[in-house]
């Protein structure tokens, strides 16, 4: 499973290579083909200004970058910037808040701990049937007191997203925190460290993989969210990518599929790049020395 340093040196060859490694490439290639195939339609549509999304299986009949050029004449660049800002702030805050909560649940014993944990998970399962009315109302009243957090504000939207910061992600972190041996805390405590020092300097460092995972999940989740965002943001220049793209496709009759597809292709790039960047933290693993204490 998790490879070790020892093995890396002795790269197997021949038949053993196939048994141990080669088949993994086959799995990878097959899966990637399955992943990419539907997206080829999107790419093809993005290069065809007048075409449909799935009306024809004859792909790439025209190659024309007009859609991509058009993207940059409108509000698309500012949507892009908005999305990056909103998602970055949201995901960093989610990681910190969720991480802190997970630390509390993992390391302290207090009344209501078990109940609180369960409640956090279950609250997130509430159907959001009326969320659009409720969120509108709550932002309306908050906006009267703190205009910066009301409707039409990116800050307000971030605040709404942070309402979900404690939830499933807290659990993922909680489980991971529990795998960090308590002896580490104890040792640090004996050395005179406070709980905050332990959290910031020891635990957070050791759980870096899961922080990266949660950050990524939160980023992607926020990046694709449009139901709440379209209630909060009403001016075109304030839209996030998801809202802007949704509007392009909202009316199926007049949907500008080419433009929409081009927008979606470009919008996928930051997500993939972020994953590429975070990978090394996600898979870095715990350094043997620090875990075993």
């Amino acid at each position: 499973m998790a490879g070790t340093v020892v093995e890396r040196d002795a790269a197997p060859r021949g038949r053993r290579w196939w048994i141990e490694i080669g088949w993994r490439h086959v799995v990878g290639i097959v899966t990637i083909v399955a992943c990419v195939l539907p997206l080829v339609y999107v790419l093809s549509a993005s290069l065809n200004p007048g075409g449909t999304l799935t009306g024809s299986n004859q792909l790439f009949r025209t190659i024309d970058l007009a859609n991509y050029r058009e993207l940059f004449t409108g509000d698309y660049p500012s949507w892009f910037a908005n999305s990056i800002i909103i998602c970055t702030v949201t995901s960093i805050s989610t990681v910190l808040m969720g991480g802190a909560a997970a630390y509390a649940f993992s390391r302290f014993r207090f009344r209501g701990r078990q109940g609180g944990l369960t409640a956090l998970l279950i609250v997130q399962m509430f159907p959001q049937m009326l969320a659009f009315v409720a969120i509108f109302l709550v932002l309306l009243s908050i906006g009267e007191v703190f205009p910066a957090l009301g409707l039409n504000s990116r800050m307000g939207l971030i605040a709404v997203y942070l309402g979900g910061a404690l939830g499933v992600n807290t659990f993922l972190m909680y489980g991971f925190f529990n795998t960090v041996p308590r002896e580490l805390d104890e040792a640090a405590k004996i050395d005179g460290a406070s709980h905050a020092q332990i959290f910031w300097t020891i635990i957070l460092r050791l759980v870096a993989p899961i922080l990266a995972v949660v950050g990524l999940l939160s980023f992607i989740g926020t990046f694709g969210e449009f139901l709440v965002a379209k209630v909060v943001l009403q001016r075109s220049e304030e839209f996030t990518l998801a809202v802007g793209l949704y509007y392009w496709a909202a009316d199926e009759r007049t949907a500008r599929w080419g433009l929409f597809a081009a927008g979606a292709v470009l919008a996928a790039i930051p997500v993939v790049l972020l994953f590429l960047m975070l990978q090394k933290y996600i898979v870095s693993g715990l350094t043997a020395g620090s875990v075993k204490g």
């Binding site: 910066a148 009301g150 504000s153 990116r154 971030i158 304030e238």
Partner: peptide, 19 residues
């Protein structure tokens, strides 16, 4: 983290026009 959300805040104060 502080400056991160802080800058987000200032960015919004300017753009959140009273509607």
């Amino acid at each position: 983290a502080c400056s991160g959300s802080g800058s987000g805040d200032t960015g919004d104060d300017t753009s959140a026009a009273p509607s």
